[in-house]
Design a protein around this nucleic acid. Structure first.
Lengths: 106, 106
DNA sequence: TTCGTATATTCGGAAATACGGATATTAAAG
DNA sequence: CTTTAATATCCGTATTTCCGAATATACGAA
């Protein structure tokens, strides 16, 4: 089960926090769009997504070769509130420009 | 200035999160009481407190040889809310028993 | 000044984490 | 079956973080 320490550890990295912000802003995003949005190597993004998934912060849905990620809607309330609190200051601090242009509209 | 990533990094450690919870529960606590409460070596506690201080999460007040720490009351709202959200699940997850018995009543 | 208490800092090593190119896997299309 | 596109995993390396004993500092008392 997710602990507060684990949540903070997950969010305590610029790239992972960026991914969470992007997913929080748009319901569901596929990996290629996330790779574009954060302009980091694909393997790096995928590795961080795996970490977020392992902590249950995000869930994935496969559609053909695409994987669509979204924030896990079944997180405990304290975790959801924590993430909601952080998103807007984080978007500013990380200078993320939402929304991400979607490559795959399926 | 404090960024969301830095805040999360600070809170993403069992010992630091414990210290923050203890300080959040009682206005002001001296180092020796914190050392007792978390039962960790003094140098370790002091090092983590220095880190929290460097991120401005806590402030210190010297009284003779004692140092009294408290949560920085001037934190941005998003940071205060984040910490407030996490305190109660963190106390449970870390099994902290508040309040801490105070050794120095000055 | 000297001593004792409370706290901070230093230091070397251990452990955890991050990185990204290369490779593997999965699935759709031909 | 082969190819291609999207994504995941592997692996060696680099960086960061953590630890606690030892040492240093700050302060009050004698």
């Amino acid at each position: 089960m997710l602990t507060p320490t684990q949540l903070c550890k997950c969010l305590g990295d610029d790239l992972r926090l960026s991914l969470v912000c992007l997913l929080h802003g748009q319901g569901e995003v596929c990996v290629c769009d996330l790779v574009d949005a954060v302009s980091a190597p694909q393997s790096t993004v995928s590795r961080h997504l795996a970490q977020l998934r392992q902590c249950q912060l995000v869930v994935a849905r496969r559609q053909g070769t695409w994987m669509h990620y979204r924030i896990n809607p079944e997180l405990p309330a304290w975790a959801q509130q924590t993430m909601a609190n952080l998103v807007s200051p984080a978007c500013e601090a990380l200078s993320l420009n939402l929304p991400v242009p979607a490559c795959c509209e399926n």
